[in-house]
Amino acid sequence: MIEIDRVTKRYGAATVVDDVSLVIPRGGVTALVGANGAGKSTLLSMIGRILHPDSGTVRVDGMDVARTQSAVLARRLSILRQENQVAVRITVRELIEFGRFPYSSGRLTGEDVAAVDRAIEYLQLEEFANRPLDRLSGGQRQRAFIAMVLAQDTGYLLLDEPLNNLDMRHAAQAMSLIRRMAEELQKTVVVVIHDINFAAYHAGRIIAMKDGRIVADGPPETVVSPSILSDVFDIDVPVHQVEGHLPSTSAPPPATAPSRRRRPQPCPARCANHPLMRAPLPASLPRHRHRPVHIKAVAGAAMIYRWGTAR
């Protein structure tokens, strides 16, 4: 459980996160939405102890992140930042191997290597694995950073705009992957996301921020409404419902019309007993959430995704 208790962050006179309190229970995907500058990254960084709040506390599994040993937290909580650079020349594989540092302290065991291999496979980075990071496209690099966080294999994942630079297919696959990790392995994912459609489709809870405060918080059915969205984003957002309910499998939404090319499956069937995701699955856990309606919010007329139709 992540407990955020009256957290405030100021830069000079500007209060960028303003007395935010929030509880995020274990398991599930929580989407953090809001306009640029709303304070999403700042809040996420404070949860991930990369920034220190001016006041308030953040606890993860009851541990105050400001006081707990960083090395202990690194096995429970990982954060992918919005902007990622590394100061040194490094290959994709080396970068992902650093995701195992909290366990291996630099000396990889067989288990570490296996976790790295799986992360590479999940993000389809095999062909780039030995390439220096600075010789990749922005989207390929972003996938490498996601893979690094996956290899870290923590119960809590804080992802700040993980879909940055990803093409439609990889964005859809990454989102499905994130969601399956949450559903099947009870990982707790907090993801900053700009695409309200993605948020509505994949998240069980949407938190909307504006000017450093939380202005809406709830399941997509309540948050994704024209009045709330127009308040959050200062723009009229018509909301349409597409299809009455979710597909009953977790197949990723086709990003484009099904093409003749075989669409790679991002998450193979053995996903559930994947050791990347070591936590055992409780038998009682429903495999997939059934949400009564599938809401689709479209800004303007740009209706590009047709989710919930073809599988």
């Binding site: 090395a71 202990v72 690194a74 096995r75 990982s78 990622n84 995701g99 540092f101 630099g106 870290q152």
Partner: peptide, 20 residues
């Protein structure tokens, strides 16, 4: 020295990976 490898990645990466 091993932890300095992580430091070399940059401060945010180091924090995330549990290196002070």
């Amino acid at each position: 020295l091993n932890r300095l490898d992580v430091v070399a990645l940059g401060e945010e990466h180091a924090t995330n990976l549990g290196v002070d």
